[in-house]
Computed example of a mutant assay.
Amino acid sequence: MTLPDVTLNNGVRMPQLGFGVWQVSDEDVVDAVSVALETGYRSIDTAAGYGNERGVGEALSRAGLDREDVFVTSKLANDDHGYDHALRAFDTTMKNLHLEVLDLYLIHWPLPARDLYVPTWRALERLYAEGRVRAIGVSNFQRPHLERVMDEGGIIPMVNQIELHPLLDQRDLREFHAEHHIATEAWSPLGRGYLLEHPVIVDIAEQMERTPAQVLLRWHIQLGNVAIPKSVTPERIESNFRIDDFELSRADMDRIDGIDEDKRFGPHPDEFDGR
């Protein structure tokens, strides 16, 4: 058994399991990404707002892998909404990452109070048309935000990266994604660590002789989500990657589905103003 790729709505293939670097310093991220790439991860998720694009770029350069073998995602910072601002910010991101073409570029948050995500999306469409990025998408967009960029833009987003874990399963939004061929990507796939001690997850993990994190990531994979766990501990980075040799039963999937509480650990996209 091997972990599958997800085929985006433009035909680009994206690894279903990636490595996230939120809250990892620019110094620490070099070693963390290096361990991830050595382990076998071939998808790295960063963002301008994380302040670690330079470190990610250094780790990619050190790895010596062929460029086409690593899928790199970054996201537009909240202060750079607007058509011209977004284009300039992309140039900075590419300089930091030492890349000529990015695999996936996302609007990090919709920031509806600022009402600039539509012209920002048009800037991403331009970058895509120019071949500077292989796929474009959004992050933390709710259905009304998605519908608006789909109605007023020219391209359906290829990805929506959202907070998603068994306590916030986002079923309705995932169904909307599936209807419009938008890939669902989960940030905080482990519920910021809270779910590692949830009794249902712990019980399934003990029965299967797996870690709670492996069980949670396997749940995401079997749902069809893209997942990007984060760690700076080499043992956990490696353990999180070893989920290709077991499957959860339908009964276990149902047990995990049943713990949804509509609980967010991050801000609500309708209310978040970027600060």
Rank of each mutant, 00 (worst) to 15 (best):
L3P: 07
L3H: 05
P4F: 00
D5T: 09
N9F: 05
G11T: 09
M14V: 00
E27A: 15
A32E: 11
S34N: 04
A36V: 03
L37K: 08
E38W: 00
A47L: 04
A47Y: 04
Y50G: 05
Y50A: 03
G51K: 06
N52Q: 10
N52W: 04
R54Q: 14
L60Q: 01
A63K: 02
G64R: 11
F71L: 05
T73R: 04
N78P: 04
D79V: 09
D80C: 14
H85E: 15
T93G: 10
K95Q: 15
H98G: 09
D103F: 00
P112A: 07
R114C: 00
P119R: 07
T120L: 03
Y128P: 02
L146R: 06
V149D: 08
M150P: 03
M150L: 07
D151H: 12
E152F: 05
I156H: 02
L164M: 08
H165T: 09
D169W: 01
Q170K: 12
E175M: 14
L190V: 07
P199R: 10
V200L: 06
V200N: 11
V202M: 04
D203Y: 00
A213T: 01
L216W: 00
H220E: 03
V226M: 05
E235F: 00
I237H: 03
F241L: 10
R242G: 07
E247H: 13
E247I: 01
R250E: 15
R250K: 12
M253Q: 08
D254L: 10
D254S: 14
K263C: 01
D273T: 15
